[in-house]
Design a protein around this nucleic acid. Structure first.
Length: 634
RNA sequence: GCCGGAGUAGCUCAGCUGGUAGAGCAACGCCCUUGUAAGGCGUAGGCCGUCGGUUCGAGUCCGACCUCCGGCUCCA
């Protein structure tokens, strides 16, 4: 048979030949360094037979940055981890251990709780295995054989995995010098041997439910990472350090933007400087909404239980709500976790005509969501949520156009911050209202809109809200964790439940459709993500202090104050740093605070000649007038 | 909510096996009068997360709770 190499040349191989055979046919060095083969773009184990006409690409230990090559290395590392844990902790049951972005993990059921310091000896044992050497063999067996084998070994989790696995069952055995060190149920692919694992580190420990199901037993997950070289591991650890420096929780305190307190977990205290950023975002929201026919409204914070029963929140969202009850009473009201019911009531308060539609209500008032204690995270997961929220009431025919409008609007906003969120189409969850037909329709409308705009997206199976599917916009924090920002949702349920109608041109009553949309998402979360994105160095228009003037000595204080006054009059946020410290120290402070411009003012300066320094340390000399002109372009 | 870890001055952290708490930075005061990333000297600052227990004695040991960190689940 023939296979096709990346340069389109053909390689003649005997029938049943594997990726490794192909490598051998090309050269012994390649065969030694090969770690996996891509067949028609799909990763495949070197030991798996190729098919006639396959287009193959061999990856080697030199492809140190290739995600697939790293995944194989890490997957094999996970198996070494499992072997080590089994040897060190008799009675442990093994579950599952895949590679993940930046590393790998393996889940175990330990008879005794594992502690953080145990990682050291486990890591030492893995390193011993590597120095001893392991090579992997692949074998295919029947489902029954696999079940018998794992049942005999006392591995119930593996038995369950065999039961639910689709396709053939394959095993990987790792061994050295003829010993059989560890055999695991695994789809692969794996390395040929452990030599390429040049750097490995167990990083942390966490609990994880079996099969991600909170009703199932909680296992102990050991996380680690591995690389093809020590330098790559060092670089990775350095990147983690850098990410910690960008952490908005740290910068929030350092830059005096906000703080969090036990006094009200999950509810930030916004400091004056943080409020500047916040208000700039609010101004942006108002300005842009006004251009697009949104009308700002304000609706109550607390509603009677009956409202939440009507909306479905009492049934579907109650656990996440702060409820209001008198002494010894059952709750009779709740704080709003979303604005939609208020907007429904507002819409329903008057007779509506098709001529009024679409009606676009915008509101960014405070929402309260009683998030589980363990899920709170700085500004990124809070209990006090403020969205740049709006609800668009329209006819069914108007829905696609309104969705388009929201998508265009979102693009405009995100471009302003020079970020590209990734889109997700979140489909029907198990816990939902409405019929399958309604969901088919709503999901279809959103999907078509994404495709119309050529926006790449992934499907978030079951991640829609209880009342409708949504297009979500996600962004990553400094550590690469993904957070949902904006959301655009199509909803046929709420208007029906609230009995909303409008009079159509046909002189009969119709039920409007509602589009729920928050484009930046929660302002708390958005400020958090922006802080990490900019590492605290906000663009000029968002910077809490835009210009700081440093008089060289007391003699220059008045002139500096006058200069600040001019800048304030020109509409900029400027302040004086009094000369109680040296210039060097005040410059340093301004740099650490990431203030866009500092102006040193001494004997040599005048309004005709200012010494301006930007955040990068770049200095320039220009007149006040041209400085102000320059600021106006930012 | 669950698993693991942590909580000492405003911040970053030290405090060995129990003997009554310490540094740097920040703050404040004085001196210096400053020229583009830390001038000098000094002062003040802590219910060692909270409550309970063991002990002659607890920052240190034990328990419960609270909060935070990393995950899991959840989630807009």
């Amino acid at each position: 048979m023939k296979v096709v190499l990346p340069d389109k040349s053909e390689l003649e191989l005997p029938a049943g030949a594997t990726g490794l055979d192909a490598a051998r046919a090309i050269g012994p060095k390649l065969a030694e360094q090969a770690v996996l083969v891509r067949v028609d773009g799909q990763v495949q184990d070197l030991r798996t037979p190729l098919g006639d006409g396959d287009e193959i690409q061999l990856l080697t230990t030199r492809d140190t940055q290739d995600p697939d090559a790293l995944a194989v290395l890490r997957h094999s590392s996970a198996h070494l981890l499992a072997e080590a844990v089994r040897r060190l902790y008799p009675g442990v049951k093994i579950a599952i251990g895949p590679p993940i972005e930046n590393g790998f993990y393996y889940d175990f059921d330990f008879p005794e709780p594992l502690r953080e310091e145990d990682l050291e000896r486990i890591e030492a044992e893995i390193k011993r295995e590597i120095s001893e050497g392991r090579h992997w063999e692949r074998s295919e067996i029947s489902r029954d054989e696999a079940k018998t084998r794992f049942a005999a070994e006392g591995e119930p989790y593996k038995v369950e995995l065999v039961d639910t696995a689709d396709g053939d069952i394959s095993l990987y055995t790792q061994s050295h010098d003829g010993s059989d060190d560890f055999t695991d149920l695994c789809r692969g692919p794996h390395l040929q041997n452990s030599k390429p694992i040049k750097a490995l580190k167990l990083t942390h420990l966490a609990g994880a439910y079996w099969r991600g199901d909170s009703t199932k037993p909680q296992l102990t997950r050991i996380y680690g990472t591995a690389f093809y070289s020590q330098e790559d591991l060092d670089a990775y650890l350095e990147r983690l350090e850098e990410a910690r420096r960008r952490d908005h929780r740290r910068l929030g305190v350092e830059l005096d933007l906000f703080h969090l307190s036990e006094a009200s977990p999950g509810s930030p205290f916004w400091h004056p400087k943080g409020m500047v950023v916040w208000n700039e975002l609010e101004d942006l929201r108002r300005r842009e909404n006004a251009k697009r026919g949104y009308a700002e409204v304000k609706t109550p914070l607390i509603y009677d239980k009956s409202v939440w029963e009507t909306s479905g929140h009492w049934e579907k969202f109650r656990d996440n709500m702060f409820l209001v009850a008198g002494e010894g009473e059952e709750p009779h009201a709740g704080l709003k976790p979303m604005n939609c019911p208020g907007h429904m009531l507002l819409f329903g308060s008057q007779l509506r005509s098709y001529r009024d539609l679409p009606i676009r209500y915008a509101e960014s008032s405070t929402l309260h969501r009683n998030e589980l204690a363990g899920t709170l995270h700085g500004l990124l997961r809070v209990r006090h949520v403020t969205q740049d929220d709006a609800h668009i009431f329209c006819t069914e025919e108007q829905v696609p156009g309104e969705i388009d409008g929201c998508i265009e609007y979102a693009k405009t906003l995100y471009e302003l911050f020079e970020v590209v969120p990734h889109a997700e189409l979140s489909t029907r969850p198990e816990n939902r209202l409405g019929s399958d037909e309604e969901w088919d329709r709503a999901e279809g409308i959103l999907q078509e809109a994404l495709e119309r705009h050529g926006i790449p997206y992934v499907i978030g199976e079951g991640e829609g809200t209880f009342y409708g599917p949504k297009i979500d916009l996600h962004m990553d924090d400094a550590l690469g964790r993904s957070w949902q920002m904006g959301t655009i949702q199509a909803d046929a349920q709420m208007p029906k439940r609230f009995g909303l109608t409008y009079m159509g041109a046909d002189n009969t009553e119709h039920t409007p459709v509602v589009i729920h949309r928050a484009l930046l998402g929660s302002l708390e979360r958005f400020v958090g993500i922006l802080t990490e994105h900019y590492a605290g160095a906000f663009p000029f228009w968002l910077a809490p202090v835009q210009v700081r003037v440093l008089p060289v000595g007391d003699a220059h204080l008045d002139a500096a104050r006058t200069l600040v006054l001019r800048l304030l009059e020109a509409g900029y946020r400027a302040e004086v740093a009094e000369p109680s410290e040296t210039i060097g120290k005040r410059i340093r402070a301004a740099e650490l605070e990431k203030i866009p411009f500092t102006v040193v003012y001494g004997d040599r300066e005048s309004n005709e000649s200012l010494a301006v320094r930007d955040r990068g340390g770049e200095q320039s000399e220009l007149s006040l007038a041209s400085f102000v002109d320059r600021l106006a372009t930012l």
